[in-house]
């Protein structure tokens, strides 16, 4: 019990003595710790800003938007797009032929080509990353043009 107290006492008084003897140095130390305080505050400031940014930024995995798909995903998607366009075209043509006009097989042939065109358009839009939307969209076309410019 005694020893640590004594030690503390010595330390404390030693410090005071030191500070009394080396007043200029003591003042220097004071000044430095002052500067340290400021930099500590600045550091805290940056950390706080970071935390605020983190808390406002969206959490979780980032879902990719309208980005052109790559590799195998692209291949699988394009195949399905093309095939489904043709399938729907043929189905519509077949239905019109059979149930409406009795004009077998001409409408089916016509709609096969329309469906193929729709399928190719689907694929084109998928590849361009324009979304899988029907309808030419002005901003999409603009964006595509910009992208081309960027590539050049």
């Amino acid at each position: 019990m005694f020893r640590p107290t004594f030690g503390l006492c010595v330390e404390k008084w030693g410090k005071r003595l030191f500070s009394l003897i080396f007043i200029p140095e003591f003042l220097g130390i004071l000044k430095m710790s002052d500067k340290d305080k400021r930099s500590e505050l600045d550091k805290f400031d940056t950390r706080l800003k970071q935390a605020q940014d983190n808390s406002t930024a969206p959490r979780g995995l980032k879902a990719a938007t309208n980005e052109p798909p790559k590799g195998l995903g692209l291949a699988l998607r394009c195949g399905a797009d093309l095939v489904s366009g043709i399938a729907v075209g043929v189905a519509i043509g077949y239905a019109l032929d059979t149930f409406v006009f009795d004009s077998k097989p001409w409408l089916m042939v016509l709609f096969f080509f329309l469906g193929a065109a729709a399928g190719i358009m689907n694929v084109f839009r998928t590849v361009q990353g324009l979304g899988i939307a029907a309808g030419y969209k002005e901003d999409y076309i603009e964006r595509a043009g910009k992208d081309d410019n960027l590539k050049d």
């Binding site: 706080l48 935390a51 808390s55």
Partner: peptide, 13 residues
């Protein structure tokens, strides 16, 4: 909670 703490931290700062 996070917002509160951040606000508190900002106030303390």
């Amino acid at each position: 909670r996070i917002d509160d703490n951040l606000e508190k931290a900002a106030a303390l700062k």
